[in-house]
Amino acid sequence: MTAAQAPGRFDGRAALVTGATSGIGLAIAHRLHAEGARVLATGRDHDRGREVVESLGERTVFVAADLTDPGTADRLAGACLESFGALDVLVNNAGLDHTGDFATSSMDSVRQVFEINTFSTVAMMQSAARVMRTGGAMVNVTSRLATVGVPTMGIYAASKGAIHALTRSVAIELAPRGIRVNDVAPGMTRTPLYDEWLARIPGGESTEAEVLADIPLRRLATPQDVAAAVAYLASDDAEYVTGTTIAVDGGYTAR
């Protein structure tokens, strides 16, 4: 069960959500919009973007973008200003998964993961920092893997761990301007990507049982669980919270 929505909590606020066309990002866009935000959603798929706008309705704009292209972060921040007159909330959700033997992972694949998970997030935070006004909030979606070791997930963990660390430094740097910076670290979350992964594994049911056995609350997170935490950190309810992480992992990292 997720926290109840707070209609009107983001009235007058403009939010930019990356990776907003599916899974966690889509749930975040829906949650912020339901609580009154004007939402600029971005992703690479035009068709999915059109579906996001149709599902949310008014106060929504979609901008197709590849976050690894030079200048994209400034273009998106500018589009938010042009559409809504402000950029009050930035949610960095876009990401690329990576699983593989560390010793044999190609450097090309490593660079690709860092380009999307790390460097594009840095660029979005820089662009937002240049235009955000007092009271702004940045929320980065990291991972439980930023703080725990799991075999075959080292490259992904490192890309998210870099943002986990950066969140704290930027929070201190932007605090004098009244801009808060936090991150949300999801555990295993039931998204289309998770379902596809499970379907590819022989004996998927037993694999899922093993996954659940490692989670104290004995269930996977839902995208809505993560969206609720993001909405809290982005809102004035968390106006004295900066430089911290909310682990949305069912107790996995508390063991």
Rank of each mutant, 00 (worst) to 15 (best):
S127Y: 14
A128H: 04
A128Y: 02
A128C: 09
A129W: 04
R130W: 12
R130Q: 13
R130C: 06
V131R: 02
T134D: 14
G135N: 04
G135W: 00
G136K: 02
A137H: 02
V139K: 01
V141G: 02
V141Y: 11
T142D: 03
S143E: 06
S143W: 03
L145A: 10
A146Y: 11
T147V: 15
V148A: 06
G149P: 01
V150H: 13
P151C: 05
T152H: 10
M153D: 03
G154C: 05
I155H: 10
I155S: 11
Y156P: 03
Y156N: 02
Y156F: 07
A158S: 14
A158F: 11
K160M: 05
K160T: 04
K160Q: 08
G161Q: 04
G161S: 03
G161T: 04
A162Q: 14
I163K: 05
H164E: 04
H164I: 01
A165G: 13
L166R: 08
L166D: 12
T167C: 05
T167D: 13
R168D: 04
R168F: 09
S169L: 08
S169Y: 15
A171M: 03
I172E: 10
I172R: 14
E173K: 07
E173Q: 13
E173V: 06
A175L: 12
P176S: 13
P176H: 10
R177D: 00
G178L: 01
G178M: 00
G178R: 01
R180H: 01
N182K: 09
D183Q: 12
A185H: 14
A185P: 14
P186H: 15
P186Y: 14
G187D: 06
G187M: 10
T191F: 15
P192E: 09
P192I: 04
P192H: 03
L193G: 08
Y194P: 00
D195G: 10
D195L: 09
D195Y: 01
E196D: 15
W197M: 08
W197L: 12
A199Q: 14
I201M: 13
